[in-house]
């Protein structure tokens, strides 16, 4: 399949942005600038960038806790993203929600639930609105292989399928639910795709370390969903490079397997592809990285300077009135 240089460069930039974002998140967390816990998505960029390359205006997104930088790819300003992550007033909820609740509805982001999977049906509900508005938009609903086993997930996909709503469910199979390997938790090999048969909907498995493979799979299913035929499930195979949270010693898994997976680096793969096809030069790559780092640093600086939400505003946003 022939891709334009612009398209490929754009994908690459988003991959790098997400990678640098997730690395930066780890960095500022280590410096004590982030309350609570973070869940680094380093190494899982391709699933998000590849699927989101099929997005269009008016689509909705239900992202997950990993990688949170996906919010920036969708279009939430970095100042807002980092302010929310650092618990500051300039975050979307003024730091009331925090790192897992970075969301702007004006960008189509529906929000996230910390009880994983309970937000899957939120995406399904947004499908009702799309149906009423009679557009060819869709809802991107991301979930992991661990979450895939929850009952709330079954209910949500079943409802979307029964009502033929425009939802693309994306199972990011990074193989781990904290310490539990997917093979221990799921009786099927592919906890997203294999279960599609239970709902009578199509599915596809893609290589979550290859952004173009993800894109092709997502494109095919997104076209199906946009045509009004109902939901579909895309499962991307990847690997969680870091621990579930920072400080996770990962003694439950074989470090040599992790190393093997880290060689399947989606960013490096894309870089190689672009260089080999003369779509990009080393200088341009350096420039892209520098520019993104500058943007990230500026946003972090902004967030650091953002005040904390004052205590007298603690009840705000609880009710509209």
């Amino acid at each position: 399949m022939a891709y334009s240089k612009d398209f490929l460069t754009e994908l690459y930039k988003e991959l790098v942005e997400l990678r640098l974002f997730e690395e930066k998140l780890v960095e500022i967390y280590a410096l004590g600038k982030v309350p609570g816990h973070i869940h680094s998505g380093v190494g899982q960029e391709a699933t998000f960038v590849g699927t989101l390359a099929t997005r269009k205006d008016g689509d909705y997104y239900k992202i997950s806790h990993r990688p949170v930088g996906t919010a920036a790819i969708i279009g939430v300003p970095l100042n807002t993203v980092f302010s929310e992550i650092m618990g500051k007033r300039d975050g979307n909820s003024g730091g009331r929600g925090g790192v897992n609740h970075v969301a702007l509805l004006s960008k189509g982001m529906l929000g996230f639930s910390g009880t994983l999977g309970s937000d899957m049906a939120v995406g399904v509900g947004a499908g009702l609105t799309i149906r009423k508005n009679k557009t060819d938009n869709l809802v991107y609903v991301y979930f992991g292989d661990g979450t895939a086993n929850r009952g709330a997930v079954y209910e949500a996909i079943n409802l979307a399928a029964a009502w033929k709503l425009p939802v693309l469910f994306i199972c990011e199979n990074n193989q781990f639910a904290i310490s539990t390997h997917v093979s221990e938790a799921s009786p099927v090999k592919n906890p997203g795709a294999d279960r599609a048969a239970a709902y009578g909907i199509p599915s596809k498995i893609v290589d979550g370390t290859d952004v173009l493979d993800v894109y092709e799979g997502a494109k095919e299913l997104a076209e199906y969903v946009r045509s009004g035929k109902g939901p579909a499930i895309l499962e991307a195979k990847s690997y969680r490079w870091r621990g579930h949270f920072e400080g996770d010693q990962m003694k439950y898994r074989d470090a040599s397997v992790t190393e093997e997976w880290m060689k399947k680096d989606s960013v490096e793969k894309m870089e190689k592809y672009l260089l080999e096809n003369n779509f990009i030069t080393e200088n341009e790559i350096t420039k892209i990285r520098e520019e993104i780092n500058v943007e990230l640093d500026k946003a972090i600086e902004f967030a650091e300077a953002s005040p904390a939400t004052p205590a007298e505003e603690i009840y705000e946003y609880l009710y509209v009135k």
Partner: peptide, 13 residues
């Protein structure tokens, strides 16, 4: 579960 979850998604949109 999905009745309530979907109501949230429908309501916010």
């Amino acid at each position: 579960t999905a009745i309530i979850g979907s109501a949230i998604g429908a309501a916010v949109t």
